[in-house]
Design a protein around this nucleic acid. Structure first.
Lengths: 194, 194
DNA sequence: TATATTTGTGAGTAAACACTTACTCTGGGA
DNA sequence: TCCCAGAGTAAGTGTTTACTCACAAATATA
């Protein structure tokens, strides 16, 4: 990914804010230009298209996830602790920047545009492969039960995280996501350990 | 809910088809009128707004879910069998009518409009309350483990169903949803039984 | 048959949208 | 001092959107 100029970074960050405030449909060039305090045309001095802005946002999320999840599975922690890392990474990120959830959970919108939905799928894949590595290690060393297929455990873990976040969003962020996440995590730990 | 006239029913059904084909953004009055073979104006003889069409669709889904899930918890079956009913109800329905998934999973789009997101939340609530009834009974009679909060079990069950369906959609319905659903169900059963 | 109601049409409308164009201003290097 | 590239603006473009309206045909009712 190319380096972003200060102005590009400003545009991307305000776009993310805008999505957090008004959801993905609130991200229009008009709204964005209002937020920046520049004309609409000015935005096109820094990005060729709205599509490019979205792609930049998705790429930055992916890059960030890559960085944060890269070493989780290689660490010396127990499998359950590694899963805790994945959980807390997600719930912390979503709490800090609700826009991330807005963007990632808009795959139905991106479905029309392959280049965007591919980026969302990459993010899901990153999480799946991280969990796969963790769980397979855990099953090998006797930490995690082996009577259930690894990919079904993954579906349950990611699914429950996503569902919790979805409800958090649909209820206008009413409850404390990190708190709920922690209880969910403890439940999952109990369920999957040997 | 008011009775729908034959023409209204036709419009609603074609709208659902349209959503299945082109996702929720493909549902425009123009596309819809083309599909029906009438003018755009004709649609407004039968519905006051596009919003009303969407609301009718969501209400019909909700009504259907109400009917199908109403008696599950009251049956004489075991808790695990009742959960199987909920699973199979969903996977069968999604396989038969992928549009249902398209609509229900578009809550990010409805988030802008409270009256629509409320309907989606009602659908989620219906599933949650059904599962809550089943699981609490199962915990009382010793079928289901009690060391995990009921609502966390629910999050895991609904979450894993939704995630499986989401991947099914993102991969263009490549795998057999009912098959995958059955394996997932068996995994869940193993995890939650005492 | 005459009349009223329902249903449909075709040509609109205004607003929203992403994006473009012609032009201006500004600050730094030749 | 001159020039010019980068960054800005105002006012567009063309398209799509949901929705409207005057009118006509079809159907029901008297």
């Amino acid at each position: 990914m190319k380096e972003l100029s200060p102005r590009q970074l400003e545009i991307v960050n305000l776009a993310i804010e805008l999505i957090a405030e008004k959801s993905i449909q609130g991200l229009t060039i008009k709204n964005l230009s209002k937020k920046i305090g520049l004309s609409e045309g000015a935005i096109y001095r820094h990005f060729n298209s709205k599509f490019d802005i979205l792609l930049t946002i998705l790429s930055s999320f992916l890059q960030e996830a890559d960085k944060s999840l890269q070493n989780v599975c290689e660490s010396d922690n127990s499998a359950l602790d590694q899963i805790e890392s994945v959980f807390m990474y997600n719930f912390n990120r979503f709490t800090e920047r609700p826009a991330i959830a807005s963007v990632i959970f808009s795959e139905s919108i991106f479905q029309n545009d392959n280049r965007l939905s591919v980026e969302v799928l990459k993010l899901l894949d990153k999480h799946e492969s991280t969990l796969k590595c963790i769980i397979e290690n855990g099953q090998r060393n006797g930490e995690i039960r082996v009577d259930i297929q690894c990919d079904k455990l993954i579906s349950m873990i990611i699914g429950s995280i996503r569902y919790t976040v979805t409800k958090w969003r649909l209820t206008n962020f009413e409850f404390d996501l990190i708190n709920e996440g922690r209880i969910l995590l403890e439940s999952i730990k109990k369920l999957i350990k040997k």
